[in-house]
Amino acid sequence: MQLSRDELLSAYRTMRTIRMFEDRVNQEMSTGDVPGAVHLYAGQEASAVGICMHLNDSDRIASTHRGHGHCIAKGCDVNAMMAEIFGKANGICQGKGGSMHIADLDRGMMGANGIVGGGPPLICGAAMTAKYRKTGGVAVAFAGDGAFNQGTTQESLNLASIWRLPVIFAVEDNGFAEATSSDYAVAGDIVERAGAYGIPSERVDGLDFFAVHEAAAKAVARGRSGDGASVLHIKTPRYYGHFSGDADTYRTAEEKEAMRRDQDCLKRFRERVTEAALLDAVQLDQLDDEVAAAIDAAVDFARAGPLPESSEVATDVYLDY
């Protein structure tokens, strides 16, 4: 699939935004000013961006505890996200959700999720709505290799298959469920498991934005045309530990170093587009600077944001009670 120059720039900008956002959040964690835990998406950018580039605001996604990348790729405001992580009243959820519950329903972003496997059933529901109203919309359940073992995910695969729901299960296999490796914890093969439900499934190199983009194009087209669900098994690295601050001693230093050196979807993207003379390095460097400035601005926005009023503690529990 041929991408326009603008699309390539947009993809790169979004991936770079995610990378810099996560590196910066990790840095801000060490200042002690971020009140809660964060799970960083760095290394996995090609997956979120390669998929979400096919979606519009009326398409829905459900995310995971490692959700910042999905949120950014789906168009959530980076300033408001950063403020949320800092627990501020100008956060995207007014400080009530934090990193694990960032959501923007107007952008079709149905929430990061603190429960592993929490999202797939919800996304079946979003797909039911799209199917019932015949909108041609699709719904994407991002889930990790850990979530793929959860009963909720397996039940959702079954439901999506029998009801031919326009769902894309994007299984981001970063090799670890918390500190336990997927080699140890995932029986059989994810693609074969999906196949057993009668769902077209494909393994995708998560380092290759273009591979993700192409596989997602097919899956999204299948959903939009009423042909039902798809599974993408996306192999991807996880640069940080399970959470920011995880000593991550279950991986050797050599392995982590090699991972960052050899498995970088942003580097690969740059090489590919510059070698093919689609974009030039100067342009990309300039974009990097712009993104860096935007992330600085997001942190400024978050730090300057007001703290929530204590009187808000019990508002928005119900619409009416």
Binding site: M110, P121, G125, A130, G151, T152, E155, N158, L159
Partner: peptide, 23 residues
């Protein structure tokens, strides 16, 4: 009106997701 498989997590969650999206 739809019969569901005996998978309460999937269909209760789907009902919640459908509610969040307008049904």
């Amino acid at each position: 009106i739809m019969d569901t498989p005996i998978t309460e997590s999937a269909f209760i969650g789907a009902a919640a997701g459908a509610a969040m999206t307008g049904l």
